[in-house]
């Protein structure tokens, strides 16, 4: 479907529009990929889709706004240029969010080890309600701009024109994806894969499953926070983090399913495919017969079509069914 649109798009319209659809799709896809990565890492360790992911992303973005614009900590203490101060504060806020993830796992998820997965999913819905409400109280009446250094600057090269923040989104995503890929080859990463495969067997091998859970939730929360940042800056949402930010993560669901729930490369590919599909639909599928807001459901349509052909997504592991 995407290919068809691509071909048609290239044929009948200007280069600028086409390039615009690609750049927008890539930056949107990068955010989806970050969110999807978080989902997948949590899923691989705990076999659960965290419905609290969006709330954690919003909390992370809020913490960035709070650390960078209100406290100016720890960036302000270090001094240096403004962009560096902001970056240090933002990194610190992301780490703080990872700690929140750690705490959530310890308090609410750990006691559920061995319980039916849908009961755990339900616990994450409870977490979502609690975190979202508290975050919205922090955010209060008005949206909170993140105070980021990207500004409204645009980087232009030939037909390509991208906001600095969009370039940063793509670069940070690539770096994080590489880091995660490396992580899965490290000792803890291998332990996580073992845990995902079989919790009991992993325990028997001396792997602390509890610790793996904690690490997975911390990484997931940190990734959510990074996605939260990039979904709350110019041009996507210059006004910053608001009550809407928490719902952004639901838009990444098609990405994780498309790629396969338990596949890290799948999450990345799924994120970019969905981002591009949505972007192209937004630019080209404007015929009124589709109805208002059609581009918003294109990701779900793409997801359903793919699932009919490949029931476990593009890269997901097929569940071996035994009697």
């Amino acid at each position: 479907m995407s290919l068809l649109i691509l071909a048609q798009a290239a044929a009948d319209s200007g280069v600028d529009k086409f390039v615009g659809a690609i750049t927008n799709g890539l930056s949107l896809g990068a955010i989806y990929a970050l969110l999807a990565l978080g989902f997948v890492i949590i899923f691989k360790a705990t076999q659960v889709i965290s419905f609290a992911h969006g709330a954690v992303a919003a909390l992370g973005a809020y913490l960035v706004a709070y650390f960078a614009t209100v406290l100016n900590f720890p960036g302000g203490a270090l001094g240096g240029p403004a962009w560096l101060q902001w970056t240090v504060s933002a990194v610190f806020a992301v780490l703080a969010t990872a700690v929140v993830g750690l705490v959530l796992e310890r308090v609410a998820i750990r006691p559920m080890i061995g319980e039916p997965i849908f009961s755990i999913a339900m616990v994450t819905i409870g977490l979502d309600i609690v975190i979202r409400t508290i975050t919205n109280d922090f955010i209060s009446t008005d949206p909170r701009p993140l105070g980021d250094p990207f500004g409204t600057n645009i980087w232009e090269a030939g037909p390509i024109s991208m906001a600095y923040s969009e370039v940063a989104t793509i670069i940070v995503t690539i770096v994080l994806v590489l880091a995660i890929a490396w992580f899965f080859r490290s000792r803890i990463g291998v332990a996580m894969r073992a845990t995902a495969f079989d919790q009991e067997a992993a325990m028997a091998q001396g792997i602390s499953v509890g610790r793996i859970f904690a690490i997975a939730w911390a990484i997931g929360a940190g990734l959510a926070a990074v996605a939260g940042i990039f979904s709350s800056v110019f041009p996507r949402a210059s006004q910053g983090v608001s009550a809407e930010t928490a719902f952004f993560a639901f838009r990444a669901f098609p990405a994780i399913i498309l790629g396969g729930l338990d596949s890290v490369p799948g999450a990345v590919v799924g994120g970019f495919v969905i981002g591009l599909a949505e972007s192209f639909a937004g630019k080209y599928m404007t015929w009124s017969g589709f109805g208002v807001g059609f581009s918003g459901i294109v990701p779900y349509l793409v997801m359903m079509l793919v699932l009919l052909v490949r029931p476990y997504g593009l890269f997901g592991t097929e569940e071996i069914r035994r009697v």
Binding site: I49, P254, L261, G291, L307, P311, Y312
Partner: peptide
């Protein structure tokens, strides 16, 4: 489609329905 995959597919149904 099975399990959680089905859950998300039906979730997609809600969004398509809303549209």
């Amino acid at each position: 489609v099975r399990g959680l995959y089905l859950a998300i597919v039906t979730l997609g149904l809600v969004f398509i329905g809303e549209h």
